[in-house]
């Protein structure tokens, strides 16, 4: 359903301005409930598309609810009951980097990227609606004290985030499904979302 929204990338200046006005109004006055009502008839919040990336298995597997990472395309619990550990990088003697190195291992199918780890508990995304996800993402107390601009930079440049677009091959030698939107488009959606004030759907 979220995928059926208007293509936000094809905006024109007047459309953009109108959206910005509406967003500002909503931001200032109404809050989420009002926004939801207006969204019925208004162009979509870019965050709805952003959410399809963030809630793709490639991302969600390391943003689980609880203390165990997930695996695969169906978000099943990580084999071997791998645990988060005190620093989100695995339990003592079962660290993420014991198996996950700086790059994908396409021979064994073990994925890899720099600082392979779980997102902190505060960044648990599993099971959230796009609106809830957005609120969590923006909350500096939960997102590692990042501003919206910091968030864009993080999601643009971080090597582990970037892995979602180049997830390598799985153990059967089949290419893993990447996140659904090309990286450049994802970043421009983020920028657009921020430019609109980072409103949550």
């Amino acid at each position: 359903m979220q995928n059926e929204q208007l293509p936000v990338g094809s905006t024109s200046p007047w459309w953009m301005a109108a959206l910005a006005l509406i967003a500002l109004a909503a931001w200032a006055a109404a809050g989420a409930v009002l926004w939801h009502e207006r969204a019925e008839s208004q162009p979509a919040n870019p965050f709805l598309k952003i959410a399809t990336v963030l809630q793709h298995p490639r991302c969600l597997n390391c943003h689980p609810r609880g203390d165990n990472p997930l695996q695969g395309s169906y978000n099943h619990p990580h084999l071997m009951k791998i645990a988060r550990g005190a620093d989100d990088k695995g339990a003592v003697a079962a660290r993420c980097y014991a198996c996950h190195r700086d790059e994908n291992n396409d021979v064994s199918g073990v994925p890899g990227a720099p600082h392979w780890q779980l997102a902190p508990v505060s960044m648990s995304w599993q099971g959230l609606t796009p609106g809830e996800l957005c609120a969590v993402l923006k909350n500096p107390q939960k997102n590692g004290n990042r501003s919206l601009t910091d968030l864009v930079k993080h999601m643009d440049e971080d090597k582990l985030v970037q892995w979602g677009w180049a997830p390598g091959k799985d153990i059967d030698g089949k290419a893993r499904e990447p996140v659904p939107i090309p990286h450049a488009e994802f970043v421009s959606l983020l920028k657009e979302w921020v430019s609109l004030g980072g409103a949550c759907p």
């Binding site: 071997m80 791998i82 339990a91 003592v92 003697a93 079962a94």
Partner: peptide
């Protein structure tokens, strides 16, 4: 539990 976390692999 610590043993499970380390040794389950």
């Amino acid at each position: 539990a610590d043993i499970n976390n380390a040794m389950d692999a």
